[in-house]
Design a protein around this nucleic acid. Structure first.
Lengths: 143, 143
DNA sequence: TTGCGTGCAAAGGTTTTGCATGGCA
DNA sequence: TGCCATGCAAAACCTTTGCACGCAA
């Protein structure tokens, strides 16, 4: 996702490179700041928060509230064109999966008809445990 | 849910009464403080946070992170029969609804069997438009 | 040059911690 | 009495805002 009529600053370029590097994994504002520090690049936290907020408004990244101490979580989804699919996000490994499924249409209709709620696929994310992490868990019987 | 080897203080009693009064609806730490103020009861925010944290550890209440400005959301589930339910959050008015629905169990199973993903009801929130906001939109055909 | 972008500093909010006091058993 | 619970104050934390300077166009 390119920024529209904005100046192309170093900070913005680096931020976009960071986003591409995430591979869809979630990150926090702190992660961005650390990334810049580690690469000896300079950016102010004000800028990070402002750019992130803009990108959320644009739809290039998503914002979640999962944990406490670490603040808000962001996730890069820019470049995706599929308008109608849901996301499955693994709480363990952080991977993001696409849900291509017809069942969910029925479920959507059920919710719409019986619960009078129109679900928004863009913002809705199913959290849970993916196959790989689920197997790892069963194997070790951890937690 | 009774507290184990703890002293039964006025504050704790009142807090439990508040919890029962919620009827399972979600609330914030601020809501608890306001409740005490409105009833001319005294409690320190320190106590509220500490008790709430304990109750979360006990399993009597659940903690969610849904919105930003208002901090964490809690929800009383002690003694209730509500087994597992999802949350519907309206993107317009911000209201949070409980989804009491059997269909979702089928949907969960489908996702589990066909997509190898175990959905976590605690973290998953369905975003969308609630009935009231939907009607308002249709009526005015706004946006 | 123009005006957006940036970043320091400070403010705003929620949550946590230290420590002395108060209350239950 | 002993010990936990409480609550004030202050700190820690994330996030936002004000304002002046810097940089892209």
């Amino acid at each position: 996702m390119e920024i529209k009529g904005r100046y192309k600053t170093k900070q913005l370029n680096e931020l976009q490179e960071f986003l591409r590097g995430t591979g869809g994994a979630h990150f926090t504002a702190q992660d961005v700041l650390k990334y810049f520090q580690d690469k000896d690049l300079s950016i102010g936290k004000t800028t990070v928060y402002r750019r992130l907020e803009e990108l959320v408004a644009e739809g290039s990244i998503k914002k979640y509230f999962i944990e406490e101490g670490s603040g808000a979580c962001f996730e890069y989804i820019g470049g995706e064109t599929h308008p109608m699919h849901y996301h499955l996000k693994c709480e363990r490994c952080g991977k993001l999966f696409h849900l291509d499924c017809d069942e969910i249409t029925c479920f959507e209709q059920h919710i719409s008809e019986h619960h009078k709620f129109r679900i928004d696929p863009v913002r809705t994310v199913f959290y849970g445990i993916c196959e790989a992490c689920g197997k790892a868990e069963d194997g070790r019987d951890q937690q």
